[in-house]
Amino acid sequence: MKKRLTPLNPQRRGFIKRFSAGLIGGVLGLVPFLSGLAVLFDPLRRKSAGASAIHVASLSAIPEDGTPRKFSVLASRADAWNKSPQTPIGAVYLRRTGPKTVKAFNVVCPHAGCFVEFVAARKSYYCPCHRSAFALDGAIASASPAKRGLDELEVEIRNGTEVWVKFQNFLAGKAEKIPA
């Protein structure tokens, strides 16, 4: 059997050797690890697409009596390496407030991000997840867990008939509208 040797007087055994061994060991570990971390943290560099006006519907498709109607929002979407033309990126409720004026709400509930439904019988929006309720104008009904009303989006009527919405999502759960 071999004999284990305990070093004599370890303090005196080449400090430089220990130090360089440790240093080199650190470099050896850090190079692969840091290059991996760079890739891991790559998403921090990416920003959300930002709001741009999207043609959502024609004016005539929105009920004239002021009942809101849901429309899908289609846009070309980039997902990592893929670019997909005209895919649904969300939905909006459009409601007429006059013959040539329209209001738009993002269907995403500002409480936790579910989709709200418009219930015609009660003339209000309900969220199926945590029972938040919103009035026709988007304001929170009392006893809702949501901290703010539905997120209103900018609307523009182009060429007299086209409804363009500046589509955007906002952070859920906050009292203020903060772009997501």
């Binding site: 692969p32 290059s35 991996g36 971390l37 760079a38 890739v39 891991l40 943290f41 790559d42 560099r45 990592a80 390496w81 893929n82």
Partner: peptide, 30 residues
């Protein structure tokens, strides 16, 4: 780390490697 960005399917394998190599920070190095 590569595993976190790689997607094994015949429509995404090359594409995800392309993305690692050319678009992600430090991907070419990794």
């Amino acid at each position: 780390f590569l595993w976190m960005a790689y997607s094994p399917s015949s429509q995404t394998a090359w594409e995800s490697v392309y993305y690692i190599q050319n678009e992600m920070t430090g991907g070419w190095l990794l």
